[in-house]
Design a protein around this nucleic acid. Structure first.
Lengths: 150, 150
DNA sequence: CCAGTTATTTAAAACAATTCTAATCTTGAC
DNA sequence: GTCAAGATTAGAATTGTTTTAAATAACTGG
């Protein structure tokens, strides 16, 4: 095999993968071909809400050969590593959200789709105290919407 | 069989079933033995969060013979008829909530259980406009809690 | 109260999303 | 390179839920 020239760029933002690579390493996950490819698909397209099946289809289209089982494993590992947020609103599918910032969601009842609501557009002004011995880990606000007049 | 004396009480709240019966009829549902028995189990125990499997088990213990398929059908029908609220927070189970008043929920991450938060203990002060052509059907607030320090 | 019609119930099969299994490959450390 | 631990895979298994088709029960008009 020919040895290729790889430009050695030391700028932080010019190495889009070192960050993910570091986060994977930090979570004790080896940066394998599959995990890197899935991370690329997940994080290069802006904020997304996707299911395992959707990501698997994405991978196929991008000619990344990866099994569905690996997609499931990877999504859960990324979730545990704090790279993804898991959202359950529909009993038939589990979404993973690449947007980790503070925000909430619209849920379209008919289509089962999700859309982000920026964190500053929802204000939860009052919350009860957590039950004894418990602490709040997150507050999810889901605004369910339907076509007008339906 | 002996003919029993049934006190003829005309007070509204002394006929716990006529209300459900009317609502079933209103929804075009025949008041069958199974539906009436399930309604009794559901609505005589105060506010509850239960899954189809849980209600089915309840029915067995109460010696009500009802198939699991009927429990699923009935829960969905009651939901459509506005007698129950459906809650999905955990991809592995769908809960039905007998409390139809305005309220929200605590979700216990480890056990997968739900608890009510009275409506007046949560205040959503700001909400975005619904997307074009859509209207808000409901706002769900889920406060996820975990054991302190976990 | 009967016959006819329609809704309901049921066991069993089918299903969809997800997880598990056991075998085969990769990776990273030496 | 060698090796052990970790990762991937196809396929089977599992779980929660829905569907099917047949049997049963509820309603309706006479």
């Amino acid at each position: 095999m020919m040895k290729m020239h790889i430009p050695h760029d030391t700028r932080q933002d010019a190495r889009p993968f070192s960050q993910i690579l570091d986060r994977l390493r930090g979570a004790g996950l080896r940066p394998t071909r599959q995990r890197m490819a899935l991370a690329k698909l997940l994080f290069e397209g802006g904020d997304r809400h996707l299911t395992a099946e959707m990501l698997h289809a994405d991978a196929q289209s991008a000619n990344v050969r990866v099994s569905l089982a690996t997609v499931y494993n990877t999504l859960h590992q990324f979730h545990r590593a704090g790279l993804l947020r898991e959202i359950v609103v529909d009993s038939q599918r589990t979404y993973f959200d690449t947007n980790m910032s503070d925000h909430h969601h619209f849920y379209f009842d008919q289509s089962g789709e999700l859309a982000d609501i920026p964190g500053d557009q929802v204000e939860v002004a009052a919350l009860p105290a957590a039950p004894d011995g418990m602490e709040v880990s997150r507050v999810d606000v889901v605004v369910r919407v339907r076509p007008q007049g339906a």
